[in-house]
Amino acid sequence: MARFQPGDLVRVGDAQMDAHHRTPAYIKGRVGRVHALSGQYPNPETLAYGADGEPERDLYLVEFDMRGLWGERATGPSGDRLLVDVYEHWLEPADAPGSDGGRA
């Protein structure tokens, strides 16, 4: 049973780790909104080291506001978004992003 549903606000974990994982640094610690559920998949963090990836993890397509994410580096108009697939164990429930644009 998926923990989050489309529309839910989620904060991405900010763990820094050298071990293989599929959460890009630029969304770590940031708040986004669940855009869609992408299904269940073996956990890449154990698959990468010879295990079978069980139990499978729910995967979410999480959307981030480009300006909130990049601040002045964002070059497009407000409304442009970035969508990233993130595994459930990297996500926690979040309140609405604050004036800091979602930075942790």
Partner: peptide, 10 residues
């Protein structure tokens, strides 16, 4: 514009 970063199994 919606950029999709293909980070996982899709």
């Amino acid at each position: 514009v919606r950029v999709v970063d293909s980070t996982a199994d899709l």
